[in-house]
């Protein structure tokens, strides 16, 4: 119970800090806008298929995530506050706090991308099966944040961080990317909810396995 309250306190700290510095949020929003604009230039007036649209949707989310989700641990490491957190909180509390925060960030990304896509591709980005889309985005964001959080913790401890984050994340996220793209295409094509049940199982399994694994391994990464 007290760990739960501590976790909430960690999340509150990160949210407050984010609202004050706007470090991740501003970069994230600009990135989404730039990426969608680039896709718009590339497509001109061609009409993409639902598979291509679903793919592009998650490509934008993936690269936006790569530009902002690693901040969560790198910023603590750069400012020297890692030790402060270690003194006041157990590794599990820190891990789940950061996981929830990254999930919130990923969800806000998907909301931003969805709104933009609906506005600029109004003629062909039409979500026909809303239930599939919502569930895919929720489960996908959870899985995304889970993998991104443990990789961010690893990258924060490396000496040369540079381009390491996408390099380490991509192989881990491929299964998830293929699945969410698959399910999103189904939502755009207007397939029945039952058609995506298999995808949901994969996404749920991915999130649970990744989170359990990260929880067990986080101590080794977090403690020097």
């Amino acid at each position: 119970m007290s760990s739960l309250r501590s976790t909430v306190a960690v999340i509150r700290k990160d949210v407050q800090s984010e609202l004050r510095t706007r470090y991740a949020l501003n970069a994230l929003l600009m990135f989404v806008v730039t990426a969608v604009a680039t896709i718009l230039f590339a497509l001109r007036s061609d009409q993409p298929t639902s598979t291509v649209l679903a793919g592009m949707y998650w490509v934008v989310v993936f690269f936006t995530a790569m530009s902002s989700l690693s901040r969560i641990f790198v910023s603590e490491e750069e400012r020297g506050t890692t030790m402060t957190l270690q003194l006041v909180a157990s590794p599990a509390v820190v891990y789940f706090g950061k996981l929830v925060f990254n999930t919130l960030l990923t969800l806000s990304m998907t909301v931003a991308v969805t709104i933009l896509y609906t506005l600029v591709f109004s003629t062909f980005f039409v979500i026909q099966t809303v239930s599939i889309f919502v569930i895919t985005v929720l489960l996908g964001s959870l899985g995304f944040a889970s993998a991104a959080t443990i990789i961010a913790a690893i990258v924060a401890k490396a000496n040369t961080r540079g381009t390491l984050y996408p390099v380490l994340s991509f192989p881990i996220l491929i299964v998830l990317l293929i699945t969410v793209m698959n399910a999103t295409a189904k939502a755009l094509d207007g397939e029945a909810l039952s058609a995506a049940l298999g995808d949901f199982q994969v996404l749920t399994g991915y999130f649970l396995a990744m989170t359990a694994g990260s929880y067990l391994l986080f101590d080794y990464v977090w403690k020097d």
């Binding site: 490396a158 000496n159 040369t160 961080r161 881990i172 990744m210 080794y220 990464v221």
Partner: peptide, 29 residues
């Protein structure tokens, strides 16, 4: 990615730990 990570970490203990964690996380997938 595993070898890129190893070359990005200087201390031996940390290199061993981080690359082991990464290979287990990758193993989950």
């Amino acid at each position: 990615a595993y070898f890129a990570l190893r070359s990005a970490v200087e201390t031996e203990e940390k290199r061993g730990t981080l690359s082991a964690v990464y290979s287990i996380i990758a193993g989950i997938t």
